[in-house]
């Protein structure tokens, strides 16, 4: 939906949206490169199946539910913008932030358990990949929480209205982070 502060590119697509998609394109190569390296190194060496048994599947499953649900609340925040419902926008943004924080808390708890058992990033190539990929992903969740918090503060102060299209842009990023987890979960915990 076009709001008054949006500018259009020559393609007719809002410039902010094109910018975010360019950013996501670069992110696809970052996470895609990591995942591609993980796949080839794993297929080329043995013993990784045993390492994955030390991961906490239950916590990862809980985090999958949390992140998928946060994508729903994020898109509902955008629906709140479209419907002209400030209350819907604020509640959905707040829920998205809380779910993001819950994801990070569960991940931190999972890391603590693994490190207590001696599975640090230096414990082997699997663990280096595991901490590298999930750590980078967690940083992206943290960044998403920060962006959504800024939007929520603006929405609460009623100063977001001229820039409500930013909710859609923040949503694009948040859903991308969700998609990354959609691939990390089976790669690390199910295979």
């Amino acid at each position: 939906m076009a709001t008054r502060t949006e500018t259009l590119t020559s393609t007719g697509i809002p410039s902010g949206k094109v910018g975010v998609w360019w950013f996501l394109a670069s992110e696809i190569t970052v996470f895609g490169g990591l995942i591609a390296c993980y796949i080839v190194v794993r297929l080329g060496s043995g013993g990784w199946g045993e390492a994955t048994t030390h991961l906490n599947f239950s916590l990862a499953l809980a985090n999958t539910f949390v992140l998928l649900t946060s994508s729903l609340t994020m898109v509902l925040a955008f629906a709140g913008v479209q419907d002209g419902s400030p209350k819907g926008l604020r509640i959905s943004l707040l829920l998205t932030i809380l779910l993001g924080l819950i994801f990070l808390a569960i991940k931190a708890f999972e890391y603590a358990g693994e490190i207590r058992e001696g599975f640090t990033p230096a414990a082997g190539i699997f663990w280096s990949f595991y901490y590298g990929m999930t750590g980078l992903h967690a940083l992206h969740v943290l960044a998403g929480v920060a962006v959504n918090s800024i939007l929520l503060i603006e929405a609460l102060g009623d100063i977001l209205r001229p820039n409500e299209h930013r909710v859609e842009l923040a949503g694009l990023y948040w859903h991308f982070v969700d998609i990354v987890w959609i691939f990390l979960f089976p790669l690390l915990y199910l295979t």
Binding site: W21, A25, T29
Partner: peptide, 13 residues
């Protein structure tokens, strides 16, 4: 255009 922005990096990967 936006499909291209998503697909081209996937091809690179």
């Amino acid at each position: 255009l936006l499909y291209a922005l998503a697909i081209v990096p996937l091809l690179i990967v």
